[in-house]
Amino acid sequence: MRQLAIIGRTVLGLLAAIGRVSLFAWGALTHLIRPPFYPREIGIALLHIGWLSLPVVGLTAIFTGGALALQIYAGGARFNAEAVVPQIVAIGMVRELGPVLVGLMIAARVTSSIAAEIATMKVTEQIDALVTLSTHPMKYLTVPRVLAGTLTVPFLVGVGDIIGIFGGYAVATGTLGFNAAAYIQNTVDFLEFTDISSSLAKGAVFGFIATLMGCYFGMNSGRGAQGVGRATKGSVEAAAVLILAANFVLTGVFFSL
């Protein structure tokens, strides 16, 4: 009986949370299309979420691409398939690792900072102050961030894909003895349009999730420094798990239907 009650409570709690997040997402979407708009805030968000994430995305991608090339080469050697390195690096980076790793890095870098910033604003009554100054927090804080995340993360994923492939290329041509021109030719010939479009679409979804979670947890922060800490932790956990789950679903949609 007790176990049943616990399971019941957990399921209900989970459903309630899904409901709250969905309502929040819906609110963000409806505010997105209704004025007033805050172009300055959107500009700042584009800069912080997109442009300033480039270094961490680039570094993540280049090391991953390099390691991938080494692994595929070593694994492929077991059945004389070393030659597939360019193709598998390309498909592995573009279809999965690029979007997922960029998504997770954005969760680490952007979701946490959004959640901490908004939670601090909540705790110090800045959100209340916004309301009294006739400014809707959803429009002023959430919309610019979610918009910037959804628009720039696909771009970051694209950059990550390219740099990841370049990492593989550098390792393959530098240490594994691949011919540079042939490597590039193989990569270009092998990639299909859906590989790239699915990669960018995943980026948009992950960017939306990452920024939405930051805003949601920030806005619903508890009181005090502890509230800010909990909000930040919760936002990154939720964003990371949702990104991985969404990736699974999207991979299913794009590649097995």
């Binding site: 110090t124 009554e125 800045q126 209340d128 102050a129 916004l130 009294t132 100054l133 006739s134």
Partner: peptide, 19 residues
Amino acid sequence: RDAFLARFGMLFQGGALFD
């Protein structure tokens, strides 16, 4: 809501400035 809030000003206990 908008018309209502436009009539008000509030000083918060902690200042609540946008940092």
